[in-house]
């Protein structure tokens, strides 16, 4: 389906953007280390790294679901009827779908609390609801990825 093709593109692109976030983390840490060795230390690297890795890791989840990187033990089912195996895979995709919806709902409240109570980072006072924005987008995309894999597993859509 065309709409699925678009979904796949967006999810892959989102993972690449997560890779860019990682690249920024690399640069921040290299810069901090070199700066520290030449007498120009920067104290915000720990909190920036934490925030950005959290965002990047969430940004990778839809990609992981779409390309089925989540480890399964398939030894017990490898000799079963392929249609039964597809059904099992479909159930797993539905679980991912439910999980994405639940977490999207709960973490939206997480972001609102974080904003309302003014959670912020220690040294740079960066508001901690900022990383929640890409995280919530990631969870919405995880939901879409799970819709796509469910359709593949249960209805053979591609």
């Amino acid at each position: 389906m065309r709409i699925f093709a678009l979904g796949r593109k967006v999810i892959d692109g989102w993972a690449l953007m997560g890779g860019l976030v990682l690249a920024v983390i690399v640069l921040v840490n290299v810069w901090t280390t070199v700066g520290s060795l030449i007498g120009l230390p920067f104290a915000g690297d720990v909190e920036l790294t934490e925030m950005m890795v959290a965002a990047a890791a969430f940004m990778f989840l839809p990609f992981c679901q779409l390309h089925r990187h989540n480890v399964t033990a398939d030894i017990f089912t490898s000799n079963m009827n392929p249609r039964f195996v597809s059904l099992l895979n479909g159930i797993a995709s539905l679980v991912a779908l439910g999980f994405a919806a639940l977490l999207l709902w709960r973490m939206t409240y997480g972001m609102l609390d974080t904003k309302e109570y003014n959670y912020s980072s220690t040294i740079l006072s960066v508001p901690l609801w900022w990383p929640y924005v890409p995280i919530l987008v990631s969870l919405a995309l995880l939901f879409i990825a799970a819709v796509i894999t469910t359709a593949e597993d249960l209805f053979g859509a591609s």
């Binding site: 993972a15 690449l16 890779g19 990682l22 990778f60 990609f63 992981c64 990187h69 480890v71």
Partner: peptide, 18 residues
């Protein structure tokens, strides 16, 4: 680079979800 990032995305996402 894109291939490296995708490999990283797959592995990292899997680890963090576990």
């Amino acid at each position: 680079m894109a291939a490296s990032i995708k490999e990283t995305a797959g592995t990292t996402g899997m680890i963090y979800l576990i």
